[in-house]
Design a protein around this nucleic acid. Structure first.
Lengths: 148, 148
DNA sequence: ACTTGACTTAAAGTTGAGTTTAACTTATAT
DNA sequence: ATATAAGTTAAACTCAACTTTAAGTCAAGT
């Protein structure tokens, strides 16, 4: 079962040009070619592309993903390194989620801010509200925004 | 209480060149200048920078952040629009968190995969393991990776 | 034989978000 | 008065990750 670059691109949801670019950059050393130079993607290559997409979503750069792929091509002697790298990325993603949750808190404060402003007809009401009148859950975040 | 571009850059943790760039792009219309053209940041401007950083963290582009700032400069008539935009960004961030949690699941599968490979000395053991032997929590994710 | 459509390549172009550079001005300390 | 440190500008440069273009190859269908 082989796929051309266009077929695989469709299957994985990327542009064919992107797959060619990845190949050119050395991220797809496992993709074989026909005698006339046409890329022949296998089902196992789809799995590789999924892994590459997963690592991209963690924020890993293509050059680092390339090194991971190269490790895998070297075989079982690099299992330890690969395990370490995956664990590191897991940590990195957990950190990103924490950061986004912080961002959510700020957006929730701003939602309260504009809802209060909307009810009052002016942003002056929430802006000048004394800390003691502010809903308790927003006090810390307002302090942080104001650099206090 | 005024800050130069360098002082404010330090306070907010960005490069002075970044603040100048934001100013040039029209993100900081509220920053005043001295008679000799020196930027004079106020404490209220620090709060603005924090909001800009928050919106950046949601993945919003600078040109869209600029439109938000411009709305705010227009005053109370845009409260509704701003509230809507903040709510939209809140949703967007929730979606990003969901995506990262999906990514975490894949990384957890890969961790199991390499830990099993490490114990066996070869990736062939986890790779060729029948679905029925696979820990239940990894079955769906392996199917997804293999495009099944 | 010819058209169509998908493939190939190398190289140039794009986008977003800055950073760097060059030439210059201003403010402060000695 | 001068050195130093920090500021100014516009414009060029960088970087990652693609995308587009130009020129060409190849296989299948009419």
């Amino acid at each position: 079962m082989f796929y051309t670059v266009g077929e695989m691109a469709k299957k994985i949801g990327l542009a064919p040009s992107t797959l060619r670019y990845y190949d050119k950059e050395g991220l797809l050393p496992f993709v074989e070619r026909s005698s006339s130079g046409i890329r022949m993607f296998k089902d196992a290559d789809f799995e590789w592309l999924q892994v590459i997409e997963c690592l991209k979503k963690t924020g890993m750069q293509l050059c680092d993903i390339k090194r991971f792929v190269e490790m895998a091509m070297q075989g079982d002697e690099t299992i330890d390194e690969r395990l370490f790298l995956i664990k590191k990325q897991h940590q990195a993603v957990e950190k990103q989620i924490d950061a986004l949750n912080e961002t959510l808190k700020t957006l929730e404060f701003k939602t309260w801010y504009y809802e209060t402003a909307k009810a009052a007809g002016t942003t002056e009401i929430p802006r000048n509200m004394p800390l003691s009148d502010l809903p308790e859950e927003y006090r810390e975040i307002r302090k942080k925004l104001r650099g206090e």
